[in-house]
Each structure stands twice: as C-alpha cells, then as structure tokens.
Simulated assay, not measured.
Amino acid sequence: MLLASASNVPGADIVVAPWEWALFVGFVALLVLADLFLFHREAHEISLKEAAVSTAAWVVIGLGFGLFCWWWLGGSAATQYFTGYVIEKSLSVDNVFVWAVILGYFAVPRANQHRVLFWGIFGALVLRAIFIFTGVALLQRFEVLLLVFGAFLVFTGWRVGTHDETEIHPERNPALKLVRRVMPVTAEFHGTRFTVVQAGKRYATPMFVVLVLIEATDVVFAVDSIPAILAISRSQFIVFSSNAFAILGLRSLYFVLAGAQDKLVHLNKGLGVILAYVGVKMLLSWWGVHIATPISLAFIAVVLGVTVLASLRAAARASHEAVDG
C-alpha cells in the first residue's frame, strides 16, 4: 500500500489568507441567497424533476470547486477536498432520511418543506464551522485526541454497520421538549412563518419546532462526520469547504431520496465500513503511518458503489419475490 511520509500530516501545509477566506465565504453566501431569493422565492411543492436538476447543479458546483482547488492549491489539496466531499455527502444520506421522518411526523406541507430545510442547512453551516475550527485546534494542541477520535469512529462504524434499522421518535427528542417548555407552540401551521403573535403573545409554529429538530439532528450527525473528515485533512479550509458544498445540496437531495430509503437496504453497512476505515486511518496516523489520500478516496468510492449496487439488486430481488408470491 502506498503510504505518505510519517512527517506529512495531510493539509497541514495548506495556507489560505484571510482575504481568500472572505472571498470564499462571500461566494457561499451568494449561492445561498440566490437559492432562497432567486430560484425558490415563492414557497411551492418541489417536483422530482426540479429536485433532480437542482441536485445535479449542486454536485457540479461542488466538483467544480474541487477542480478550482486543484488549480489554486495543488493536487494534494484537491484530492483531500474530493475525499472529504464524498465522505460528507455519503454520511449525510442518513441525515436526509431522518429529515423525512421529522417532516412526516409533523405533517409539514410539501410547499413549506424547502423553506424549513433551507434555514436548517444555513444553521448547519454555522455549527459545522464551529465544530471544524474547534476540532482542528484541538488536534493541533492535543495529538492524543487522534486515538480518541479514531476509536470513536471505529465504534460508530461498527454500531452503524450492525444495526439494520433504528426507530426514530421525534416526540421523544429533548429539543422538542425544550421548545415546548420555553415557548408555547400553535397547533396549526402559519405558512412558512416560524413564530406568530396571538392575543399579544408570541407563539412558535410547528415550522419552528421542525427547524429546531433538524438542527439538533445535524449536531448528532456532525459528531460522526467532522472527525471522519479530520482524518483526511487538517486544513480548516479544506474541511469546511468540502462540508459546505456537500451539505448545500442536501435540500434538493432530500426531495430525490425521500422515498428511496427502502431501496438502499445495505446503506448502513457501507457507511459503517467507511466510518471504521477513517477511524483506523486516524489511529494509524497516531503511530506516524499516513495512508495516502488518493487511496482513501478510491476505497470510499468503491465501498459506496458496491453498497448502492448491492442495495438495488436486493430491492429488485425483493420486488420480484413479492410479485411471484
């Protein structure tokens, strides 16, 4: 196996000036604002065709930025970006299915779903930035955390890979209980509004409750995905940019995949393998053994490809057996 040199920590040599950070953040903000006020200005039900086109556009933007990184920061940085992008995109699929449960539980009208997911993604960007900068700073200061993060990822990979189905109960979520304790909630929706004033008193709407639950679930998933990407790169810019472009397209991906959970029957096993792999990679780096990033990217791509093909074959087999029955 090709190995990077023991002294070469991936991403440690990538330097991004403050003004370059400012341009990047401005570019992301421009994309977010265009998505909300230009392409989805009016609340409406997202069709499968519109969601597929939007998903493809976000993927093109994400991959295009990776090519830009290749030109700007070099091949090593671009490979780290692509690997982080693929990891975050794949791990986020489970998050999309959790959104489907939450939106279904609260019976959020389809015309309003894009708006609440937009603000959920916006909040996720802020939370991810905090996690990433904190995580990189901690790893630079306390190298022993490599063992902690690595062991955690291996354990999480085993847990995800060996549990076929996990029931989700939104009504038991602590965030929901906290909202209802702090602020009264209306029984009905009020369009896309998150709060309303009734009889001189401020009320939260079910849209606000859904937003809080979406943010809470993103925190849970970030606990897995951020350490996984930190195993690929220590560059705050590479980790954040790959995260940002991966999750920006999750809203449209939700409308594409919301009904596909039953078809991706082996998804949990593939995600478990990926998490365990990056955990082992992080543990090895503690002993000075750094697996080259192109190998990690190839391994993750192969695992995802095998997982999707095996899932589709299993779903087709189950459908044929049902018809024969």
Rank of each mutant, 00 (worst) to 15 (best):
S241K: 01
A228D: 08
I247M: 01
N243C: 03
A199G: 07
F149T: 07
V223Q: 03
A231W: 09
G157Y: 08
T186D: 06
A244M: 14
V210N: 07
V219R: 00
R234N: 08
D224F: 12
T217V: 13
R181P: 01
R193F: 00
L147P: 04
T217K: 06
T162P: 10
T205E: 07
G150K: 04
P227T: 01
I229V: 15
G191F: 08
V197F: 05
V196T: 11
L178D: 14
A246Y: 04
I168G: 10
L146T: 10
G249F: 09
S235V: 05
R172H: 13
F208V: 11
F208K: 08
V148F: 14
R172I: 06
I238S: 05
S225E: 05
V210I: 12
V179I: 15
L250K: 01
S225C: 01
N173Y: 02
Y203T: 00
E165G: 02
P227L: 02
R180H: 12
L153I: 12
F155W: 15
K177I: 03
G191K: 13
L248N: 00
V182P: 00
H190Q: 11
V212F: 01
V220E: 03
V182Q: 07
P206W: 03
T186P: 08
V209I: 09
M183L: 14
R159T: 10
I232P: 05
I226K: 04
R234T: 15
L146D: 09
V239E: 00
T156R: 13
S242C: 08
A151Q: 07
F245I: 07
F149K: 09
I232M: 09
A228F: 08
L147M: 13
V185T: 10
I226P: 03
S235I: 09
L213F: 02
L211W: 11
L230H: 04
T166G: 13
T166N: 10
A175Y: 13
R180W: 01
L178P: 05
S242V: 02
R159M: 07
L146S: 14
F240Q: 01
A228G: 11
T195R: 14
W158A: 15
Q236M: 13
G161A: 14
T192S: 10
A244H: 00
H163T: 15
T192I: 14
H163F: 10
N243D: 00
D224N: 12
M183S: 11
H169N: 14
G200W: 07
F152E: 11
V179Y: 03
V209D: 02
L213H: 00
F240G: 00
S233A: 04
Q236R: 14
I226W: 03
V154K: 05
I232T: 05
L230T: 04
L146W: 10
V197D: 06
N243Q: 00
V197K: 14
V219L: 15
F152H: 13
A175W: 12
R234P: 02
T205Y: 04
G161H: 12
I168A: 03
R181N: 00
G150W: 01
V160Y: 02
A228K: 12
A222K: 01
T217H: 04
A246M: 06
P184H: 03
G191S: 06
A246T: 03
S241P: 07
L153W: 08
A246L: 12
H169F: 14
L147F: 11
D218M: 10
G191D: 05
A204S: 10
